[in-house]
Simulated scan of single mutants.
Amino acid sequence: MIELDETDRRILRALAEDATQSAGALGRRFGLSQPACWRRIRRLEEAGVIAGRRVDLDAEALGFSVSVFLGVKLATKGRVGLEQFERAVTAIPEVQTVQHVLGLFDYRLKVVARDLPDFERVLRRRIMTLPGVGNVEANVILSEERLPGPLG
Rank of each mutant, 00 (worst) to 15 (best):
P148Q: 03
E83P: 03
L74P: 09
S143K: 15
Y107N: 02
R43H: 03
F69R: 06
R125P: 08
A51Y: 09
G31V: 06
F105W: 05
A16M: 05
D118M: 05
L12A: 08
L70A: 08
E60R: 15
L82S: 14
V49W: 04
V122T: 01
P93S: 05
K77T: 14
R10L: 15
C37R: 09
P35V: 10
D5Y: 03
V68F: 04
K73M: 12
N135L: 13
T129D: 07
F105Q: 07
E6C: 07
L123S: 04
D118Q: 09
A75Q: 12
S67P: 03
R42T: 13
V89M: 02
M128W: 10
A51T: 15
F105M: 08
L57S: 12
E60P: 07
L12R: 02
S65L: 12
E3M: 12
T20S: 15
L12P: 07
M128Y: 12
D118N: 07
R9H: 09
A25P: 06
G81A: 15
A47M: 01
R29C: 11
R13W: 10
A113G: 01
D56C: 11
Q34M: 15
A113T: 00
L26V: 04
A59R: 11
L102V: 08
L109E: 00
L74D: 10
R121V: 02
T129R: 15
R126S: 12
P131W: 07
L147P: 01
R146P: 03
E45M: 09
T7Y: 07
V80M: 10
V89T: 00
R40V: 00
T76F: 14
V89H: 00
A23L: 09
L70E: 08
Y107G: 01
E137L: 14
G52R: 01
S22W: 13
T90Q: 14
A61Q: 11
A25Q: 14
R114L: 12
Q34L: 11
E6N: 09
V80Y: 10
W38G: 12
P150F: 13
E83I: 08
D18Q: 06
V66N: 03
A75I: 06
A75H: 11
D5Q: 00
A138N: 08
A25K: 11
L123K: 05
E6T: 09
G48D: 03
D58Q: 10
L109Y: 01
V68G: 03
I41T: 00
E46F: 06
L130I: 06
G63L: 00
A61T: 04
V72D: 01
R42N: 13
P93D: 06
D58P: 03
Q34A: 15
M128N: 13
E144G: 09
R43A: 07
A75D: 13
M1R: 11
E3L: 10
V136A: 08
A88N: 06
L151N: 05
L123Q: 06
I11F: 03
Q96N: 13
G52A: 04
Q34D: 14
S65H: 14
K77Y: 09
V111S: 05
V112L: 08
R40K: 13
G24D: 07
L62K: 05
E45A: 07
Y107A: 01
R42A: 10
R10M: 15
D118T: 08
G132Q: 06
E17Y: 10
P148R: 02
L26P: 00
P131T: 04
V133P: 04
S143E: 15
R124F: 11
E94I: 10
A36P: 06
G31R: 02
E86H: 09
F30A: 11
